[in-house]
Design a protein around this nucleic acid. Structure first.
Lengths: 354, 354
DNA sequence: GTCCGGGTTCGAATCGTTTCGAGGCGTCGC
DNA sequence: GCGACGCCTCGAAACGATTCGAACCCGGAC
């Protein structure tokens, strides 16, 4: 046994018991005399044995205790968004309480230009995977995981046969928000949308581009307009949910002859960017233009303004994802979850200028 | 073999070769006839076998392919800081290229009031662990890992015997920044510091509290003042590196009889909060008060102001951590790394009012 | 014809743990 | 006093793969 780390067999030998008994002393499963357990633990600390090797345990039990969280895109981009972070936070703590660790896996290969999926997705140990956001029907990551036989949970994504989804009432929330603006008297409402999927860009959306819309939350939040019976005067697609992008999009929308009287951004960060753009252009909010967001995150630097937005329960979403994972591991077929949202009116929306 | 997933043995049987040959066909190690490999792969796709089971492979090789990243505190808090996120991003992609997955592990137990460390730290499979920030000499996580025999890399932490550290020139950067302010003529310079370690609070630091300073970057950035020959008129400790905290600290510092003419915040987020506090109090920057930060992150909503700050190479830090991990796994004894920083003067610092 | 060697393939051992059924021993009940 | 029953402990068989040395087959050389 040389100088390598001691194994359960070493401990058993030192304690004068069989390997199976030593295992029992650690796992606690099955009956074992207190004295024996004591003796085994003593031998263990004597030898510097720090508990059963997870690798051996995993092989035997067939479980790794690891849940992979697949990040749709670049980590940097994803994590700059507080929405993602708060969901991830809820997920990590929920899974942690179940004894599951979270393995971060990029959804796309690290080296640009490569097709296929990140090798980790194909080779890393995992009992279950969560596509936390940004998944699509034809997601190569999804296909790869299904081929491996790994159970999958999708957050904020499309309905896929046999894959449980956890989402929020994007559509209804958006509808409420649009109605709020319509009730205030707005007739010219523009949209700054989240990415459509596919190549990222910050640009006015053409009718053709509209047909390429793949990303589910973007789609649902747009559909809220239909439900409210309002047609946006213009849609600008942002390359990511970031303040800078919102600012660029805001310039595109507001720096024109006849700007809209209200702008609905599909995320709070984008809305914040639009506010900055309005400020840059010397427009007052909400007198010259109303601005609304989506998500309900804290934006302390917006004070004294308060953003009108649709608040979603972010920590609860992470928790719901965790519960779904638990159900999946227990062999159940979890129902899709659709969490409620609430309209939160702030100071950035008001009646249009007459 | 019923309905469970096929194993290498099944594939070998179907292909009419031995298990060892089948293994060779997948791993690519060792000589194998092209025709044989072909046949094995055909049998594999026939049976729906998607590559060797990572659990079995791990047990045999003794490697899990997993690097644990220990988050010092609550995930939420950590990830709201772009600094952490950018480092993590660099780390994940560097490790990913080496085929290592990143397992997120909370440094403290999820349930409040519990002592000890998160159970994941003790039981999860890992080849190496990175204490990415916020580590201390007596860190229970560190001790636990050392007992398990897991090699550890510390980011931004104290020098611990036998544990490689990756940090930045906190002290020198801070010194340069303070000299910059002194050169401008400032004599009354206050500090908003990062947490000291231990109980978190936002309060003026008393002499006793000063002796409890444990967190390394906080300490080094304060030492920069000594090197520049300047004694801060006041130090306020923030509970976390967040805008809200900086704002609260800023009020504490600026809303007094005779406020300092310059405030050095130990992070850009804190500095941004101080700027907000100054604005709330009707103070002009830099005419009434100069404000400087540390880190060099993007703060688009600060525009048109540009924060004077000490920029650190965040992605490079993540990369350096990754390289250190690689060296450690290769059995080397990596040297501690100290990455360079650069003073970046913006529009938020200027001469004091005369 | 025999021997040699390169190129492939195979068997068997091994990684460290869990689990299952069997067995040992002491005690209790009749 | 004997049988039955509990409580513990043990041995052995997985779990799924890698790896090392041995065995094998074939062609070429002497």
């Amino acid at each position: 046994m040389g100088h390598s780390r001691p194994t359960l067999a070493d401990v058993a030998g030192a304690a004068g018991v069989s390997v199976s008994t030593a295992s029992l002393a650690f796992s606690g499963a099955g009956p074992i005399a207190a004295a024996t357990r004591e003796r085994v633990h003593a031998a263990a600390s004597e030898l510097g044995y720090s508990g059963p090797n997870p690798l051996g345990r995993s092989l035997r039990s067939g479980r790794s205790g690891i849940a992979a969280v697949v990040i749709g895109d670049q980590l940097r981009r994803s994590f700059r968004d507080p929405v993602s972070v708060q969901v991830l936070d809820g997920l990590v703590s929920t899974l942690g309480q179940m004894g599951l660790g979270v393995l971060l896996v990029p959804g796309m290969p690290a080296t640009e230009g490569t097709t296929g999926v990140d090798p980790l997705l194909e080779t890393a140990p995992m009992d279950v995977a969560v596509l936390i956001w940004g998944s699509r029907e034809d997601d190569p990551a999804l296909l790869s995981l299904q081929r491996r036989g790994v159970p999958v949970v999708i957050g904020e994504g499309p309905a896929v046969e046999g894959v449980p989804v956890v989402g929020i009432q994007d559509r209804r929330g958006s509808e409420e928000l649009v109605r709020h603006l319509a009730d205030l008297g707005h007739e010219r409402i523009a949209v700054v949308s989240l990415p459509f999927g596919g190549p990222r860009r910050c640009a006015v959306v053409s009718p053709e581009r509209m047909t390429e819309l793949r990303w589910t939350p973007t789609k649902h939040r747009l559909e809220g307009f239909q439900d409210a019976g309002v047609v946006p005067t213009m849609v600008v697609e942002a390359a990511a949910s970031l303040v800078e992008e919102g600012q660029a999009a805001g310039r595109l929308l507001l720096d024109v002859e006849d700007p809209p009287t209200a702008v609905v951004a599909q995320s709070d960060l984008l809305a914040a960017g639009v506010l900055l753009a309005a400020r840059d252009l010397g427009m007052r909010v909400p007198q010259d233009v109303s601005v609304a967001g989506f998500d309900g995150i804290d934006l302390p630097w917006l004070a004294p303004d308060v953003l009108t937005t649709v608040a979603q329960p972010l920590a609860a979403k992470g928790e719901a994802l965790g519960q779904t994972v638990a159900a999946l591991l227990a062999g159940e077929q979890p129902e899709p979850a659709l969490l409620p949202v609430t309209l939160r009116t702030g100071t950035t929306t008001g009646p249009p200028r007459t």
